[in-house]
Design a protein around this nucleic acid. Sequence first.
DNA 1: AACAAAATGGACCGTGCGGTACATTATGTC
DNA 2: GACATAATGTACCGCACGGTCCATTTTGTT
Lengths: 224, 224
Amino acid sequence: MGTTTDAERRGWTQNPEAVKQDILTVALSEFAENGFSGARVDTIASRTQTSKRMIYYYFGDKLGLYTRALEAAYLKVREGEAQLDLDHLAPQDALARLVSFTFDHHRANPDFIRMVMIENIHKAKHLIASQVIRDLNVAAIDKLTEICRRGQDAGVFREALDPVALHWQISAASFFNVSNRPTFSAIFGDELFEDIGQQTIRRQTVAAILSIACKPETNFPEHE
Amino acid sequence: MGTTTDAERRGWTQNPEAVKQDILTVALSEFAENGFSGARVDTIASRTQTSKRMIYYYFGDKLGLYTRALEAAYLKVREGEAQLDLDHLAPQDALARLVSFTFDHHRANPDFIRMVMIENIHKAKHLIASQVIRDLNVAAIDKLTEICRRGQDAGVFREALDPVALHWQISAASFFNVSNRPTFSAIFGDELFEDIGQQTIRRQTVAAILSIACKPETNFPEHE
DNA sequence: AACAAAATGGACCGTGCGGTACATTATGTC
DNA sequence: GACATAATGTACCGCACGGTCCATTTTGTT
């Protein structure tokens, strides 16, 4: 390797990093849209600035490209989550905030949700194979674990509370809200997925999670 | 049509209905396993007692077969739901029972869940095209609507309660529990999906739904 | 400038797979 | 039994699509 950086390469006739990134971006969108077998390498190639030849040059085969796209989706969404700061809030408020945030964040990242849906169809085969993603994900629950500990120390959360089970509940609502919108709205209409409906759902979800976390006698306030 | 029934045809050399049913059963399992583009018509044919030729004879093309398999999945699962009788229970108990039942029922029908997942990947395109399924689904919420009405009449449920929003909450938990098991357990381990863990999740879910439905002052008992 | 290595272009290939042509046999009707 | 039609078996087709070959240009090193 030389001493040139990516920044220095900018503007050069050849720019491998940009080419890779270009391919990856298009691939993510195409896999998220059509799934692994549904996506077409030729279609991905045609949507890039480069050629099919380069896809195989950099990513080996279709599976290699898919794996990298999946990793890219996880990386992007975890970066977004890292922005959230909850340390200054009381445990109940921090939890309410985390739920609201997760709900909105999933909604803002439909491609990520679709990639996870696709992975689940494949029984998580590729996710399991990717150490990168495994490492990313165990960290995803750190904030929640910390909130649980604080809430228990303060005596407002139940003693038997399991952060993983609580994360399950938060994920279930936030994920389903995006993943199953097509079938749900096809049957019951789209109202729940418009602004007013989403506010209702989110408020209900926050309340439901708090009722699970908090001790029965604790009267928690209404949250936005 | 003649006067012969299906029962009378049993044992005949040719048995069109049985052939169709055979194809449909295999197709459902294969589509649920691999998705629409992932499934192979040749593979379906080979798992059948009959040939690829007959698939095209009865179902036209791959899409036609998929559509019929999707309808079959919905029909089967709705039949199971019809067994449930809640009229003799108090509103809170009926709701708790409905949630528990839905949770277990989804868990017992993974192929159905996978077909719905696949439909969502396809933005519900085929579900929307099938009037059969649309009709089936609007009826799916009848029991819940009736429970809500009874609970409100009895003064134990909130006045602003929306059956569709409540159904959303019940579905989110019950569906996610099956659909996202692969990725979730790949990251956090499989404990929550074993017996003890599932009891915890189900109990939490029932409690969460009741807390959404019931008036704040209502002190509802713990349910199994 | 010379050379190796990295990056790229474009035509091409093999086959998996959705779908069909053409026949023959089984069944219902009179 | 004669006839129409429904049901089925077998062999096959066309091409979409994942993947590669071979050549050429661009870049880094000395």
